[in-house]
Structures are given as C-alpha cells and as structure tokens.
Design a protein around this nucleic acid. Structure first.
Lengths: 170, 170
DNA sequence: CACAACTTTCAAACATTTCTGAAAGTATAA
DNA sequence: TTATACTTTCAGAAATGTTTGAAAGTTGTG
C-alpha cells in the first residue's frame, strides 16, 4: 500500500471510529493527522491536508488542547503557532481515558447515586430501580478502578497481567 | 427522592450518556425504561411513558433486539408483543461489549492492519505511520483481551482480581 | 375469505450538530 | 503608532441524524 493512500485511509477510519463513539469526526481526523505526522503542524497545513476551513481547524484544535492531547508551540522568529501531539499511544490512551471519565462517567455516577437514594417503601418498582442503580454503580466503580490501574501502569506490565488473567480465569 | 422523579432522572441521564457515546438517545431511553421496569412492556406503554411515536418505538426496539439486549415475547390469547430486557447488569455489559467490539472495533482493526502493511521504504513519515498503527493494533488487541476476560467471568472474580491488581501494581 | 389487532416502513418534517467564512481580536515588529 | 501576520469567534448555511404519522404489511380469528 502506498503511503499517501495508507495515511488517507488511517485518517478516514479514525474519523469514523470517533463518530461512532461520540467524538466529532473532524476532531478525530485532526488527531489522526497529528499523530501520524512526525513533526508539528501549522493551521494552514491541517486545513490543506483535510480540506476544511480555518475556523473548523481552530475550534477543533482548541478542543484537542482542552483534552490535553495536543500542545501548542511556537518557533522563535515565526509568528505562527505549531501544533504537536503526543506520539506515545499508551500515554494518549491514558489521557483519553481520564478525560472521558471526568466528562461523562462522573456526572452519570452522580445521578445514579442520587437515584439510588430512592425511598423503597414506594413499592416493587422502586425496589427494582434501586437494585439496578446499585448494580450499575458497582460496575461503573469497577470499570473506573480497572481503567485507573491499567492506564497508570506501563504497557508491558499490563500485557503480562492480562495474559495471566486469561490463563487463571475461573 | 420520589419514585416517579427518580425514574425520570434515570431515563434522562441514560439517554444523555448514550448520546455522548454514540448511541441514539431514544434507544438508550427505551433501554433504561425496560431495565427499570420489572416486567415486559408493550409498544403502547413505551410510547406513553416516553411520549414518542409508535414508529420511533418500533424502530428503536428493533435496534435493541439486533443488539441482543431486548427480547420480544407474546402472551397466549393476546395479539400484541411484549418486550423484555435482561435485568442482570453484568450480563448486559457483556452483551454491549460484544456488540461494540464487533461493530466498531473489528472494522477499525482491519483498516489498521491494512495500513500497517505499508511499504516503509517511502520515507520517514511512512515509518512513523507504521509505528503508530503497530502500537494501536497492540493496544486494541490488549483491550479486546481484557474485555473478553472480564465479561466472561463472574462479577465477584473480576472484583477480586481488580482489587489485587491495584495492590500489586508496579 | 373479510375483518380486526397489531407491527413495520419510509418520506417528509424537524432537530441537532457541524462547518464555513468573514469580521473581530491579538501579538509582534518596525 | 501602524502594519502585518496570524488566531479566534460566531451567525448563518449545510449536513447529518432523528422523529413523526399515515399507509402498507402481517398475523390471527371467525
């Protein structure tokens, strides 16, 4: 496969993956482009490569910076900004996991805990609602712990651990 | 908190969570309603509770059935269908994880593997593209293995395992 | 068969999200 | 200070995704 074509496919696939996980397509594509390009890029270059407007690039870069996935740098003597993305996939996973935990898991957990305080003398349905929310709270906590453990360890430890889990699995 | 209000909040929160993870809001809400109601429901009841049209309920129930999360049943002597949802949260997680693996992870993995076959004599950028896709393939495989292991084990084993991992963590 | 009870489909309406581009804003250099 | 080189913002346009409702389809019953 040719480089140009491979890069194009990668960016498209990443955009599609983003979409189906609730991340805006352009944000995912800019991310893909930056991670694949072994040097910082300017807004101009990104516009060019993805055929999108300046405003769109600017907004999505800001989102990526908010997610702590992309950094802005400058070169002395030049006015324009350069954008740079962490290129260690493992480190990126950690950052994405942390951000999504904060942005989407925490608020839901809050609601679940509120709902879980329901008065169960109101009947069978109230009891069931409480049971379901309790179970969900448990699962969310468990997932959170697993994610925290994994993303704070190094890749080789995680590999080993998962492998041994698969063997010992009940 | 009152039952009616708690249920409402739960359904709304679940819909919002669905949206931010790429699942249509109504589908997520019907799911929430079914999981919280300890008996099968008819299309009529769902329409009523969520204030949505018959067509919308019908389409989203079909999606939930495709996801193998909801089942259709009938009662003898009655013509209408009843819809029923697995109420074991752990079992549901397994199903959702499996479906999303098939629908979104597998296709991306395929593209990544294709892109990873790139000819690296085309220069520095091609080498970097290959490195990134290799790392991603690794991470995706690892995630897949972890998910498979967890979702095929019982909850108490998973709890114990994660707890001990957190302690031993490098 | 005809009818009744129900479900599904799908074109059009509606809602939401995303994108553009021009104007406003900011920073640096001279 | 003014000019220049850039970035950001945001109202409206475009694209995309969702919902409705009425018609068509299906199934069971007499």
């Amino acid at each position: 496969m040719e480089y140009i074509q491979a890069k194009e496919e990668f960016i498209q696939a990443w955009g599609a993956l983003g979409s189906s996980w609730g991340i805006n397509k352009t944000m995912a594509q800019i991310f893909a482009l930056l991670i694949v390009t072994p040097r910082s890029m300017t807004v101009e270059e990104i516009m060019e490569e993805l055929s999108i407007s300046r405003g769109n690039v600017s907004m999505n870069l800001r989102l990526l910076i908010d997610w702590e996935i992309v950094e802005r740098t400058t070169k002395k003597g030049e006015r324009k900004d350069y954008y740079y993305c962490e290129r260690d996939v493992w480190a990126l996973c950690r950052k994405v996991a942390e951000q999504r935990k904060d942005r989407e898991i925490k608020p839901v957990l809050k609601v679940l805990e509120q709902v879980n305080n329901i008065d169960t003398t109101e009947g069978e349905d109230a009891v069931e609602l409480k049971r379901v929310t309790s179970e969900l709270i448990d699962v969310v906590h468990l997932t959170d712990q697993a994610l925290t453990t994994f993303t704070n360890s190094d890749r080789s430890w995680v590999s080993k651990t998962i492998l041994s889990m698969m063997k010992k699995k009940k």
